[in-house]
């Protein structure tokens, strides 16, 4: 699987290099008159969560990228720090290459390394991210773990402008697994959903936007059973406070 992917990448890169016309490299103004390489760092979520069962979590979800219009390298990180256990309940790092496949959609491919408290996992990732009609921001990925388990996550977000500075964003996340991975608490079928509603204010441009909100998390089926067995909850309401940052 991964060998196939690597060779596909290699082929794509080689094709790009050969396809570029001779002229394209001879014109030095293409360097001086074009802004080509960009980078960015942002954290979509940087928040504290208080659950209805007095659980406290610190959550971070963000990414950093470097690249061109045609190819970006992106590092995505996501983690939940549990106050009670003083430990990362989840901790993911993804390293992906991202290429446009349509006016509004990018494909991603790379690896994801999970190193939370407990067993680690490494996954291969294939994903699609972009903007759907009616302004829904979509991100969905297929993961294949080093244990051979496959799963798919799906995220959608919609922003509602109360004013041009006060923004309500509604988000939906879900995870579906095609096989059980009991060690890390993943059951077969629909694992979990998370619905969030956050009210933010753009304080400094779009670099800093503090927010408050609510999040509802629920686990289903075998996953819920696994959670109950290990003494966790299957349904949580959180009040959240945090900030969105972008540099």
């Amino acid at each position: 699987m991964s060998r196939v992917m690597v060779s596909m990448w290699g082929f794509a890169l080689a094709a790009t290099a050969f396809a570029a016309p001779a002229f394209a490299q001879e014109d030095p103004a293409k360097k001086t008159q074009t802004a080509k390489n960009f980078w960015g760092v942002s954290a979509e979520k940087l928040e504290y969560r208080y659950s209805d069962s007095d659980e406290e979590l610190a959550v971070i979800e963000g990414d950093a990228y470097y690249g061109t219009d045609e190819l970006k390298f992106r590092w995505l990180f996501a983690g939940e720090w549990e106050e009670a256990h003083n430990a990362w309940e989840t901790l993911e790092n993804q390293f992906v290459g991202q290429v446009p496949v349509d006016d509004f959609w990018d494909a991603k491919a790379g690896v994801r390394i999970d190193t939370p408290e407990g067993p680690d996992r490494v996954y291969g990732v294939l994903g699609l991210t972009g903007l759907a009609p009616y302004w829904f921001e979509i991100d969905t990925n297929l993961y294949i773990s080093d244990e051979g388990d496959a799963s798919v996550d799906f995220e959608a977000e919609y922003e509602l402008l109360i004013t041009n500075y006060w923004i309500v964003s509604a988000s939906f996340e879900s995870l579906v697994a095609f096989s059980e991975d009991q060690e890390i608490g993943v059951g077969k079928g629909l694992n979990s959903t998370e619905v969030g509603l956050r009210l933010s204010y753009d304080l400094i441009d779009r670099s800093l936007a503090p927010y408050v909100g609510v999040v509802y998390e629920r686990k289903y089926g075998d996953t819920a059973d696994l959670a109950r067995d290990s003494g966790g909850s299957t349904e949580d309401w959180f009040a959240v406070v945090g900030a969105r940052v972008m540099f």
């Binding site: 802004a35 960009f38 219009d69 509602l160 402008l161 109360i162 041009n164 441009d205 779009r206 972008m246």
Partner: peptide, 22 residues
């Protein structure tokens, strides 16, 4: 440079005239 980068990150970065709920 910063403006260019911000526009690449988010094309509506500087647009504060978008239509609102109001």
């Amino acid at each position: 440079d910063r403006i260019m980068r911000n526009l690449k990150m988010s094309a509506d970065y500087y647009n504060r005239q978008q239509q609102t709920v109001g």
